[in-house]
Design a binder for these strands. Structure first.
Length: 430
RNA sequence: GGAGACGUGGCCGAGUGGUCGAAGGCGCUCCCCUGCUAAGGGAGUAGGCGGCUUAUACCCGUCUCGAGGGUUCGAAUCCCUUCGUCUCCGCCA
């Protein structure tokens, strides 16, 4: 949600920033609505002021017992009623019109975000580790001999259709271990507060973080109107919706492990094999709520938290700063972390860390008040995966694969695996 | 699922049709007094929107007592809808 006053003051910069996202100038139509809106408000309020003044005199006349005057004023106020109602209606319509339009406009990229059309224009800003050198041809995760039995797409399709999977045995265990490892690391080492919250939310929550009104097709909705969250960013960020926080309550840093649901409309044909892109998946999500002056540093901190998980797992990755054309709706700047997948012989996204500035907090009306200051200010919100659990499973399996079809597990997971260190070629733990 | 109660400012809590954006208390800010492990006195203290403006400073207008709608000349106060909270019963992981 954009500040209409900022647009009013500098429409040229606003359009220029949106142009970097490939959008046509929109400030003229916004300002036209805004101008009319303000004219309507002024007119409606003037009429209201008249009515209120007369109404006040009605009370005085009644109190003094002047019945004739009372009746006269009463009629006057009554006459004003229709006029006021009509003007208020118009003002409200224009306000809604402006609001509806503003809700569909994406966030403005920060100046340092590189221009570009798609992922090919993203800029690498960090690289860690070396892809494993294998003396055999690496295969994709679902082709690894020890994995096939515990990763069943056919049976899942029978139950639910495509883009679902049933994990079992050692694979399910590694998947669970990864989620626990991530949560433990973030809470014990990185200072995040663990949260376990709803995966079904109202419209207002989805509006707050920006999934609605534009992207309703991307998510699922229950018959009674709840949305299945596409990410627990929705749950975590909306914790502060509608609140005015004390300055010393900040920063808030949350982490949650949750199911996520995505329709993947528009992804037909992409990543159809394996469990890279599912309708239902698990993710450990981080959300930070901070003061404006701290959000840049917070994005670095959050990105480091996500990278830290991969480093502890010993997985090679690179971090890219997304270009304007590849950034999500609500982001001002986004760092994607891409993990090396030997089976695909490339880096694939496993985390996306974004700062939204005050874009979401304006939608949610989430503010804070500085000590001693009168005016509340909008918070800054950030979100990032830390990490996508399913994709991390893929990475662990592909990077740990051996010539005989077994998989060596990262050291940090051994404690979560009852001391087991590998998945044997037959699928058992060893 | 059934029955009932309730939703007021940062917090607690008065207020059942007009003088209420709203008593009182707590908290917080400033000032005074006092002087040592404490207290006393005074003042101030909601937000949104529109206008004015260099201004997120004043000032003016307007809206907001969970939200939306209605009755009325006029609503925190009456009615309806809705969301939420609590209590009892039922059911249940």
């Amino acid at each position: 949600m954009h500040d209409i006053r900022a647009i009013r003051e500098n429409p040229t910069d606003f359009d220029a920033a949106l142009a970097r996202r490939g959008l046509d100038p929109i400030s003229p139509s916004i300002l036209a609505i805004d101008t009319e809106r303000r004219a309507k408000i002024t007119a409606a309020e003037a009429a209201l002021a008249d009515r209120n003044a007369a109404s006040k005199q009605v009370g005085a006349a009644k109190a003094s017992g002047d019945e004739a005057e009372f009746e006269r004023l009463r009629a006057l106020v009554s006459d004003k009623k229709a006029e006021v109602a009509a003007l208020e209606e118009e003002a409200k319509d224009m306000d809604a019109k402006l609001n509806d339009l503003l809700l569909t406009i994406p966030n403005l990229p920060y100046a340092d975000v590189p221009d570009g059309a798609d992922e090919n224009d993203n800029v690498e800003i960090h690289k860690w580790g070396t892809p494993p050198t294998l003396d055999f041809d690496a295969v994709e995760h679902f082709e690894i001999k020890s994995v096939t039995r515990g990763m069943d797409f056919e049976t899942a399709a029978k139950l639910s259709g495509s883009r679902f999977v049933i994990l079992s045995g050692a694979i399910a265990r590694v998947h669970r271990a990864l989620a626990q490892f991530m949560l433990d690391t973030h809470t014990s080492e990185n200072g995040l507060t663990e949260v376990n919250g709803p995966v079904m939310v109202r419209d207002s929550a989805m509006l707050g973080t920006g999934q609605l009104p534009k992207f309703s097709e991307d998510s699922y909705q229950t018959t009674n109107g709840w949305w299945l969250i596409p990410t627990s960013e929705v749950t975590l960020t909306n914790i502060v919706a509608g609140h005015t926080l004390d300055e010393d309550y900040l920063p808030r840093r949350y982490v949650a492990h949750s199911l996520c649901f995505r329709s993947e409309a528009g992804s037909a044909g992409r990543d159809t094999s394996g469990m890279l892109r599912q309708h239902q998946f698990e993710k450990v999500e981080m959300v930070s709520v901070v003061k404006p002056e701290n959000s840049d540093a917070e994005l670095d901190r959050m990105t480091n938290c996500a990278q830290d998980i991969l480093e502890r797992l010993g997985l090679a990755y690179r971090t890219v700063k997304l270009c304007t054309g590849d950034m999500g709706f609500g982001a001002r700047r986004t760092n994607d972390i891409e993990v090396w997948l030997p089976g695909q012989n490339t880096y694939r996204e496993i985390s996306s860390c974004s700062t939204c500035g005050d874009f979401q907090s304006r939608r949610m009306n989430a503010r804070f008040k500085r000590t001693g200051e009168k005016k509340p200010e909008f918070l800054h919100t950030l979100n990032g995966s830390g990490l996508a659990v399913g994709r991390c499973l893929i990475a662990v399996l592909e990077n740990g694969q051996q010539a005989d079809g077994s998989v060596n597990l990262p050291d940090v997971l051994h404690g979560y695996m009852g001391g087991k260190t590998k998945i044997n070629a037959d699928g058992s733990l060893g």
